[in-house]
Write a protein that binds this DNA or RNA. Structure first.
Length: 371
DNA sequence: AAGACGGGGCG
DNA sequence: CGCCCAGTCTT
């Protein structure tokens, strides 16, 4: 037992020693504010550091305290999240801020049970906040830790399986240092992000290479092992561009519980089997808004990849033939000028379309209304 | 246990 | 074009 402890201590010392020499200067490393740590951890879920940094800075300018966030409109929060993806993170975090203000007197809780009761805070985020902001001994297991420890211990099991992740969690629990658990966690993740990378790991610079099974046996290209992923389907989406007499475009709000919930879009939908794209637009606008439209010109098409399917989006200029646009379910609609449209949060594909409209039409939609 | 859920960067 | 990323929630 004595030996085991010494081995773990050496692991931890080598790791944290390397960390103090090589850690990046990141915005959320200059604070002890649990609120700011929390924001950073939510943003960092499935998202790279370089992507997060500007969003983090801007978000905290908009919402300096948890009270500012709790009091904000969801649209304002989502606008700050626009382009970051996984928008349920923003909706859940907004809800959690309200919960903290209401139930916990504005203080982010420091117990595992209470903090995981917050929307969007799972095992990883709870452990990250508790260790980094509150110096509590909870080991994080994220994609980096999985890769580093799978290689170090030579774990060849499928990392998709819950059993493998549990096994790695147990290793992390045993290795984590008493003194500075937050630094230990960040060090392991930092190592995974900058040295023990998925491809071409820099084993020559690694403080753990001495004891690493994968490095010793030249198996870093096969560990961690991940079972093959399924092929994702490809859909065709057809949307309508409708301009009113005030030179404004018709946009619709997506329901909160749907994909991209709380963001805006040009009305339209998925092409069905044996259906022409123009027919798709007509059908969707009839179903969603209760209007009959005439289609007179294709504006553009673009490809976009989501996590579980791909789309080609086709945009058509339309004219309302009969009916007044009215949202069918709880969804809202609005008319937005090309200037004002930037104040609404849009998902990437729609935003790309808007940017193309902006450059090609130079803010003037008149001729498409009249042709 | 498996699927839903974005977007960007890299080979 | 496919894989991966400081994961969580739902079914």
């Amino acid at each position: 037992m004595r030996i085991r402890i010494d081995v773990n201590l050496r692991f931890s010392q080598n790791l944290t020693g390397w960390y103090h020499q090589n850690k990046r200067d990141l915005p959320w490393r200059n604070t002890n504010d649990p609120y700011k740590i929390w924001i950073s951890e939510i943003m960092l879920q499935q998202t790279r550091v370089d992507t997060v940094i500007p969003y983090y800075e801007h978000f905290l300018e908009q919402f300096p305290t948890i009270y500012d966030l709790a009091d904000a409109d969801q649209q304002q929060v989502l606008k700050c999240w626009e382009g970051l993806g996984y928008y349920s993170r923003a909706r859940n975090m907004h809800q959690a801020a309200k919960t903290v203000v209401k139930e916990f007197n504005g203080r982010i809780p420091d117990s595992y049970e209470k903090i995981t009761s917050l929307k969007g805070v799972g095992p990883y985020t709870a452990s990250a906040i508790l260790s980094i902001a509150f110096q509590k001994k909870f080991a994080v297991v994220d994609g980096n830790v999985i890769r580093v420890l799978a290689r170090y211990f030579g774990i060849t099991d499928d990392i998709r399986s819950a059993k493998t992740k549990k096994r790695i969690q147990q290793h992390a629990d045993e290795l984590i240092s008493e003194k500075k658990p937050g630094d230990f966690n960040q060090a392991l993740m930092e190592l995974g992000a900058t040295v023990c990378k998925p491809g071409n790991p820099l084993c020559g610079e690694c403080p753990l290479s001495t004891g690493c099974v994968a490095a010793a046996s030249a198996k870093t290209d096969r560990i961690p092992y991940k079972s093959p992923s399924k092929k994702v389907p490809h859909h065709h989406i057809a949307v309508g561009l409708i301009v009113n007499d005030r030179n404004e475009l018709l946009i619709a709000l997506r329901p909160n519980e749907s994909m991209l919930g709380g963001l805006w879009e040009f009305p339209g939908g998925k092409q069905e089997a044996g259906e022409s794209l123009k027919k798709t637009v007509k059908r969707e606008l009839k179903e969603e808004l209760g209007i009959s439209v005439e289609i007179f010109k294709k504006f553009d098409e673009l490809k976009h990849a989501y996590s579980h399917f791909k789309i080609t989006m086709h945009a058509y200029w339309c004219k309302i033939h009969s009916g007044e646009p009215a949202p069918k379910s709880s969804q809202k609609i609005e008319w937005a000028s090309l200037e004002k449209i930037h104040s609404y949060p849009f998902p990437k594909a729609n935003k790309t379309l808007i940017e193309k409209l902006q450059t090609m039409e130079n803010g003037d939609l008149t001729r498409f209304r009249e042709s």
